[in-house]
Simulated scan of single mutants.
Amino acid sequence: MQSLLHITATTLAAASLSGCVMQDAPASDVDLTFAPIYKGVRTDLLDGDLVNFHVEMQGARSGADVHAYAACAAAQYALIRGYGFARHVRTTIETRADVWTGDAVYTVSASLPRGLKTIDAEVVVSDCAENRIPTV
Rank of each mutant, 00 (worst) to 15 (best):
V124Q: 04
A97E: 13
G102D: 02
E94Q: 12
A14K: 07
V21I: 14
G82Q: 02
D49W: 05
M57W: 03
E94A: 13
A121K: 05
V136C: 11
A75K: 06
D120V: 05
L112F: 08
F53V: 07
T11Q: 11
E122N: 12
A14P: 00
S16G: 08
A74D: 00
S111N: 12
P36H: 06
V55R: 05
G59S: 00
D49S: 13
C20H: 13
R96Q: 12
L32F: 10
C128I: 02
E94W: 03
G84R: 10
A14Q: 10
R61L: 15
G63I: 07
I133G: 01
A71R: 10
V99T: 11
Y38I: 02
N131H: 11
F34T: 01
E94M: 07
M1P: 07
A121V: 02
A70F: 00
T135G: 10
C72A: 15
A86V: 11
T107D: 00
N52A: 13
A104T: 03
D44F: 07
L116M: 15
T101F: 06
D127M: 11
A13N: 04
A70H: 02
K39R: 15
D29P: 02
A9K: 13
R61T: 09
G40A: 07
T91H: 00
V30A: 02
Q2H: 14
R96S: 14
L12Y: 01
Y69M: 03
V123T: 15
L32D: 13
T11R: 07
I7R: 08
D98M: 07
D103E: 11
I37Q: 14
D120P: 06
A73F: 01
A60L: 05
Q58W: 05
S109D: 09
Q2F: 13
Q58D: 08
A78F: 05
T101Q: 11
I133L: 08
R96I: 10
G48T: 05
I133Q: 04
G102A: 03
S28F: 11
I93M: 04
T33I: 08
L12G: 01
T43W: 00
D65F: 04
S28C: 11
T10W: 03
F85Q: 04
R81M: 13
Y38A: 01
D29H: 10
A129N: 09
M1T: 12
Y83E: 11
V21Y: 10
N52R: 13
P36E: 06
G102V: 05
A68Q: 01
A35Y: 09
I80R: 13
H54Y: 15
S111F: 07
K39D: 08
E130V: 10
V66K: 06
A35G: 10
D24E: 13
F85E: 03
G115Q: 05
I119C: 06
S111W: 07
V124F: 09
V41A: 07
P113S: 05
L79S: 01
Q76E: 14
G48H: 06
I93R: 01
D29S: 12
A14F: 11
E122V: 10
V105Q: 08
D31M: 00
E94V: 11
T135F: 09
V30C: 02
R61I: 08
V123A: 15
L79A: 04
T101W: 06
I119T: 00
D49A: 09
T33F: 09
T135I: 09
